[in-house]
Design a protein around this nucleic acid. Sequence first.
DNA 1: TGTTAACCCGACTATTTTGGTAGGGATTGT
DNA 2: ACAATCCCTACCAAAATAGTCGGGTTAACA
Lengths: 138, 138
Amino acid sequence: MKITARADYAVLAVFELALRFQNGRTQAREIAERQQIPLRFLEQILIQLKRGGLVKSVRGASGGYILARLPASITLKDVLEAVEGDLSLLDPRLNPNSTVLRVWKEVESEFLGKLQSLSIEDLVRRKIREDKIVFYHI
Amino acid sequence: MKITARADYAVLAVFELALRFQNGRTQAREIAERQQIPLRFLEQILIQLKRGGLVKSVRGASGGYILARLPASITLKDVLEAVEGDLSLLDPRLNPNSTVLRVWKEVESEFLGKLQSLSIEDLVRRKIREDKIVFYHI
DNA sequence: TGTTAACCCGACTATTTTGGTAGGGATTGT
DNA sequence: ACAATCCCTACCAAAATAGTCGGGTTAACA
């Protein structure tokens, strides 16, 4: 029941790409440095995000990545699904007890609903707000 | 992000004990048979539930287990905490990015809130309701 | 009081998942 | 051409998971 490093990194990467969405493409190396993610691992994750349709890439020298969709249209659920596949809480090999199964399904749908309600744009807005608060406090 | 077999079994065990709460103690063997849980594994889980204060045991021949508290006062969160320890979604080794961290915390508290809102008594009530529906359909 | 059926405890083990790394190929700007 | 970047497959060590095992402790009961 823990968020994996992979999932966390994926969110950080998409978040970073959203912050720099205006500036055009951003290179994996830069994301890795800014968010403290091992570069070779990040590359794997970016490929998954690309296959999931969240990110576009440009190859070759001065290549890089850019979001394939607007930050407002990308949810945490999208990002997690891209890197983790199926997000269902229950292992399908488990538990055919119908009462308990239904309850788990209910917990799951609540959880997925929450993930879907949070867009990357929300995160960017929060960051801007947090930065402002820091500014006022200086 | 999957529920472990251990956690699932723990819920099933407590659920089964709630169903038989009136009848006094129930033996591990019986729980194992009814809920299809490997007996020796279930024993480990019952010990954890006992240490978590959810279950009482009686040793010796014709011993067994019984809930230590009323089903209404035991939540899914209690059960999971007893067997999994800390339920926080985020690995503490991870991610010091404050914006993303805050969002994960929000998801986490939503999730834990849901788990806390569901009591074992709720499950029992649901089962009774489901059984009734089956009855009407016969 | 001896046997037996239960719970209790610590250690062990096989398998799967996680969190990367490595090598090298493909693509493109300069 | 060459250097930088992305892409793909394969590999690997460590950790977590899902049990198993041996044997000890406790209590009912004959």
